[in-house]
Structure formats: C-alpha cells, structure tokens
C-alpha cells in the first residue's frame, strides 16, 4: 500500500491507559487499524500481561524483556556488554514484528522468571525514542492502572487516551490519570477521555457523573456484542467488521487524532 506522502508530523505518540477491564487493548487494536490507513503505525504492547498481539492477529517471537536479558547476561568486555545501548538498538531491529497493512508490533514483555518489572518498564522510554520517528503513529497499550504515570514511562507522549467504561470506578481512574498527569508535570500535549462499552441504559448516568466531576468525554464507544462474541471465541479484535458499532465510533476518534497529529 502506498501513501501519496507520509503525514507531516512524524512520530506522533499515543498512550492508552485506564482501569483494568475497560477495553484498552480492544480499543487500541481498532484505533491501530484505523490509523494504519493514514500512515505507518508502530504498536507497542507495554503490558507485561501481554494481550495486544492477539488483538492484532499477530504473533511475536521475542520481546524487549528477552533482549534485555540477553544483553544483561553478555560476558564482560564483550561487544554487547561494552556498548549496551548500541547492542540494544540493534536487537530492537530484530524483534520488531513486521505486520501487514503497515502495522509493526513491539512487545515490551517482562523479565524472565522472578524479578521486578521496573527495568523493562524503564526502557520503554528508550524504545519510544529509538523507534517513534520512523513511524507516523506510535500507539502504546499500557497496563491497567496508574503505575506507568508515576514511573513517567509515558511522559511526553503527544496524546494520552484515558479509557473508562460506564462505571464510576472507571471514570475515577480516568480522572486520576488526568490529575496525576498535572501533578507530575507530565507533558502530554493532550489528554482524551473515552468512555467505552456504553449502552443506552448506562449513558445518562455516565453523562451526569461526567458533568458533576468537571470531566469532558471526547467520545462514547458503544457496547458492541460483536466484540463480546469475538472475545468469547478468541478472535482478534482487529478483524471486527467495519460496520460494527464500535468500529464506527473508533473511526471518529481516529479522525480527531489525525487532525491533532497534522496540526
């Protein structure tokens, strides 16, 4: 597929965060599909409990955590040990899974066996720095919760999408994402709140909660039975029909993002 020209703002980074179970990975997959029609997309799965590859219908052989292990265990004074940064950059080339339809995928993974997830989390920043400018969009599917914010691994992304479902708790987490960002002086150019899995019954209550808390929802993505079916059958979300309610709603989000990216 050829584009007449790539987007003007290369390296537009988007992080997708929110409470566990609100639909971050599913939304990320649909968003990635949409954006891949406008430019080249790098998908990064930053959740150690990795789900994005399946959502995109791709398999990944090695993760960033794996190459980190290899470099950490390189014998002293070997080329890999002497120049860890360089070895890491080279190894990154190897693990980027090149997909069809202009989507490439990187999985952050986790350390082998027992151990803290800090080291792999911390190098997410280096990965973004190394790769984002080779793509038009980078979409980072974060793990649930707020840890990546306090760790500042998603600092300075261009757009932070905070996803909530139609619950008070989900909204609260989304609000916390926004507040924590201000508190930590993290430079997102923008925070977008998206409400997911919204039904006709739950929408009014949701809108009231939103208003009472001074929040602003950028988009409401409807509950989509086809997604529930796909999940139950273990099918990749990216194969969701284009005329499915969630697909249509995501297209609108995509247009907004594309407009921001080319501003």
């Amino acid at each position: 597929m050829e584009f007449s020209g790539s987007l003007v703002n290369k390296g537009f980074t988007i992080a997708v965060s929110g409470k566990g179970g609100v639909g971050k990975t599913g939304l990320s997959a649909l968003l990635i599909r949409c954006l891949s029609r406008k430019g080249y997309v790098l998908a990064i799965d930053a959740d150690p409990d990795s789900n994005l590859p399946h959502a995109l219908g791709m398999t990944v052989r090695k993760s960033v955590g794996d190459i980190r292990e290899t470099i950490m265990h390189a014998p002293a004074r070997s080329p890999e040990a002497a120049n860890k940064g360089g070895a890491f950059q080279t190894a990154l080339h190897e693990i980027v899974e090149e997909g069809d339809n202009n989507i490439d995928l990187l999985v952050m993974g986790r350390p082998e066996g027992e151990g803290c997830y800090c080291p792999v989390n911390n190098i997410l920043r280096q990965v973004i720095d190394a790769k984002a400018n080779s793509y038009d969009f980078t979409v980072i599917d974060c793990e649930a919760g707020l840890e990546h914010l306090s760790r500042r691994t998603t600092r300075d992304v261009d757009l932070m999408i905070a996803v909530s479902d139609a619950t008070w708790n989900g909204l609260l987490t989304a609000k916390r994402v926004k507040d924590l960002a201000k508190e930590l002086v993290v430079n997102f150019s923008e925070v977008m709140l998206i409400a997911n899995k919204v039904t006709d019954e739950t929408r009014p209550g949701l809108e009231r909660m939103v208003q009472e808390n001074g929040l602003e929802i950028t988009a409401y993505v409807p509950y989509d039975p086809q997604i529930a079916l796909a999940d139950a059958l273990g099918k990749p979300i990216i194969e969701l029909p284009e005329d499915s309610p969630a697909s249509i709603a995501v297209v609108q989000v995509c247009e907004k993002i594309s407009e921001r990216a080319t501003r």
Binding site: Y40, E98, G99, D104
Partner: peptide
C-alpha cells in the same frame, strides 16, 4: 541521504 531501513513488503 539513502541511509535507511527497508520495510516488509
């Protein structure tokens, strides 16, 4: 100016 990488496809 031709230094670069070549993508799948």
């Amino acid at each position: 100016r031709y230094i670069g990488e070549i993508r799948k496809g």
